[in-house]
Design a binder for these strands. Sequence first.
DNA 1: CATGAATGAGTATTCATTCAT
DNA 2: TATGAATGAATACTCATTCAT
Lengths: 207, 207, 207, 207
Amino acid sequence: MKHENKRQEILTAAMRCFLRSGLKGASTAQICSEAKISPGHLYHYFESKEAIIGALSEAYLQTAAERFRSAVGGDRSVINAILSEMDMQAKGSQPAKLALMYEVFAESARNPEVAKILRTYDLSRRSVMAEVLRHGQRRGEIDPKLDPEAGATAVIGLVDAAKAMTLRASRSDLKKVQDTFKSVLTGLLRSPTQKATKSTPPFRSRP
Amino acid sequence: MKHENKRQEILTAAMRCFLRSGLKGASTAQICSEAKISPGHLYHYFESKEAIIGALSEAYLQTAAERFRSAVGGDRSVINAILSEMDMQAKGSQPAKLALMYEVFAESARNPEVAKILRTYDLSRRSVMAEVLRHGQRRGEIDPKLDPEAGATAVIGLVDAAKAMTLRASRSDLKKVQDTFKSVLTGLLRSPTQKATKSTPPFRSRP
Amino acid sequence: MKHENKRQEILTAAMRCFLRSGLKGASTAQICSEAKISPGHLYHYFESKEAIIGALSEAYLQTAAERFRSAVGGDRSVINAILSEMDMQAKGSQPAKLALMYEVFAESARNPEVAKILRTYDLSRRSVMAEVLRHGQRRGEIDPKLDPEAGATAVIGLVDAAKAMTLRASRSDLKKVQDTFKSVLTGLLRSPTQKATKSTPPFRSRP
Amino acid sequence: MKHENKRQEILTAAMRCFLRSGLKGASTAQICSEAKISPGHLYHYFESKEAIIGALSEAYLQTAAERFRSAVGGDRSVINAILSEMDMQAKGSQPAKLALMYEVFAESARNPEVAKILRTYDLSRRSVMAEVLRHGQRRGEIDPKLDPEAGATAVIGLVDAAKAMTLRASRSDLKKVQDTFKSVLTGLLRSPTQKATKSTPPFRSRP
DNA sequence: CATGAATGAGTATTCATTCAT
DNA sequence: TATGAATGAATACTCATTCAT
């Protein structure tokens, strides 16, 4: 298992490099020196730089999925769980991380292995979200007329869009933008009973 | 003028290369041979590879803005105009183009010049969209309670999210996903009068 | 003569560039833009960059020779004239100018044309100096036993060495070093009558 | 140790290239092929071409200093030791080496790292020479009134000037010129006792 | 398991010079 | 006399990868 440990060390070192310099910007030499191994030795653990990127993407996406699963696993209102997930995604998104994510997306258009990983992740993410929505419907928190699968897609799209905004909206706009997104999300999900009593969302002008 | 023409030729050649190989993947040598000029001659027209990327980004974003402005300029319903813009964005998005866009986003996190271009574009896009929403409100098509600025942000976020989906959702899911987004959008914008008579949107389960 | 004028303009522009960036460091493009002509047009006036360097060296050395000739031409003591020439050379020597001179020397070891120019200049400089020394001997200022030709060489060597010091000695040492050189020079040249009454030169320790 | 050996091999190969083509004239490609290594491998041993120049300068100046120190270390007359050092410097100076030295001087005006190396060398050279002069004074060979520090500067200036002459004086003049310099040097250094019995130096005309 | 020497094609960019107009 | 488009070899340097030890 020593092998596996070292592999993990290298992966985290590589992640630090990728965050610092980007996917193509980080060289294997950088990664090796960050991981304190010799350049040749890297290839004892990984077939190529691409393989490192693949492994890293997979690991990252898996932990992201697990984190989300546990986040919505608790007792609290499903909508609140989703909203707080959106918050966390947006707040935990340093520009470097987002840039890296975008590079991985770009990579997926040219590197089929990465594309496959990304596809798998999206499917699992969607099925988890659909499950969560069904759970919410059973508890009467989510509009029972909402199709869980399609709703899941919409939610994920909104969460990702909110995340993306952190890179492009100016810091001062960010809060407003994210509140808007939360309102859209809430409007989309909330059951009719709750909708009747809804407060004016922030993107409405003064009544 | 001859200078400007050649500059444009080089830009389109460069775009072909970037689409094929990515932002860092395309070399100046590739660009030169695609443009059928000698490697040195490139620098007669552009200061650097970065300058090419900058010019290309700017041109792309400008035409995108103009296209949208003319799309919503006509007589038809504002909501329909926005929906069809979303369609066009989504349908015109070959994976390669999207990947490139993602790379530019990533670039913007590390290259302040690109960041500035992107920021400017986003602002102009938002102000145009807000103007469109106000127009729709005057015509009674758009919910008068909607704050135009925040609404514009939400719309743009949704359009971009729909676009992004084309890279990650499988082809078979795509239509459903996009319909979902359109419904969310319609729900967000439509005036109460129209909302009363709304048809069941596609992301509702069969009643 | 318009041709000749433009040629001169280009030469002075080139000199500015060479001073700024060095002999190999200055590009023909830089020179052209400094001279406000097109890159092609440069070759209407000069066969090559080397030819510019050659012309520039020749012009510079000629004016240097003329300046010296007129400096020692006056009425004052020959030794003082030489000492003040040494001062002027040393003080007028910005690092950039000296560096350029060194580069020309280096060039002369590889470029026969420059070597020839330099050789010619040295010979003329030496013959002028020898003439000056003979003049001083006639006036009883210079040791009559000094061989004018060999003495001229020694003087020139000392003047050049003093000049060279400005690039390498720290600013605080410079005055002392140059005084030393002046003393050596004076000791070498002064007639015995004057030597009998000489003041202790600065490079003697306290008696 | 193998690393250090290879480093040295590369340095000598680089020196051959620099002597042949000059500091800017020699390309890293030339150096690599002279050292029989691949172009990339050079950077395993040196950070940059500049670093090679720096290492080379330092090594050269150090051995020069050591050589001189041992030359004056023996039993013989201090003045003779200095004169023979002058001879060696002058005779060992192929034009190519001198040209290179000049280029390094020029470089020092634009490259602070080279300037620092040069400055250090000059200081150490001066302090060694001053020590030698003091030694000569103790042995009654050198004029006790001479200030060792200033005298050292003068001596070094003369030695360098003599060296410089080899590049510019025609071969036939060279001996005469160097004899002149030796006489100047001897006159500067010799103690009064010896001066009383001095032979007519070569730069005096026949009496 | 580990090193680090070695590769060689590849990188963006520069340059003196030529040529058509 | 003048332009500036065009060249293409050259520049210093980087990189993912291989291999002998």
